[in-house]
């Protein structure tokens, strides 16, 4: 390993060689907890909430989404989540299942969000998670 680094250093000028492992480490750390594209976290929750898993199923003709997240800080977080259910044309399917819902995540604990599509026309979704003002 050391030999490899020495080899790399010999190829790159000066301090630039040390930037590569640092960059690799930084990028791998970011890749581990990338928020899925379907989930839109409010900027104020960046670093406070981490989305751990997202599973989709379609057992009974209706798209079902389960998300596990984690409150990363030592403070209870009060949040809202809201699903936008979208049909094949990207149009929103309005329903009582698209209403904003309040929930809390205990300090340093995991939380789950469970959503079911209002109709069989739904093919995709967006989930918004926002911090609620106290």
């Amino acid at each position: 390993m050391n030999r490899d680094f020495h080899g790399l250093r010999s190829l790159l000028p000066g301090k630039a060689a040390w930037l590569i492992p640092a960059l690799v480490l930084l990028l791998s750390a970011c890749a581990t907890h990338k928020t899925p594209d379907e989930v839109v976290l409010a900027p104020s929750l960046t670093g406070l909430v981490q989305i751990e898993t997202l599973t989709e199923s379609n057992d009974n003709g209706l798209l079902r989404v389960k998300i596990t997240g984690r409150n990363m800080i030592d403070r209870v977080l009060t949040m809202d989540y809201q699903f936008d259910w979208l049909d094949k044309d990207g149009q929103m399917v309005d329903s009582v299942l698209s209403r904003k819902t309040r929930f809390t995540a205990d300090r340093l604990r995991y939380f789950t969000i469970d959503g079911i599509a209002p109709s069989a026309d739904v093919v995709s979704y967006r989930l918004y998670i926002d911090e609620r003002a106290r």
Partner: peptide, 13 residues
């Protein structure tokens, strides 16, 4: 709205 959403979510699931 919240009660209806909770009930429908539970029933369909």
């Amino acid at each position: 709205e919240f009660a209806a959403m909770d009930a429908v979510n539970s029933l369909l699931s």
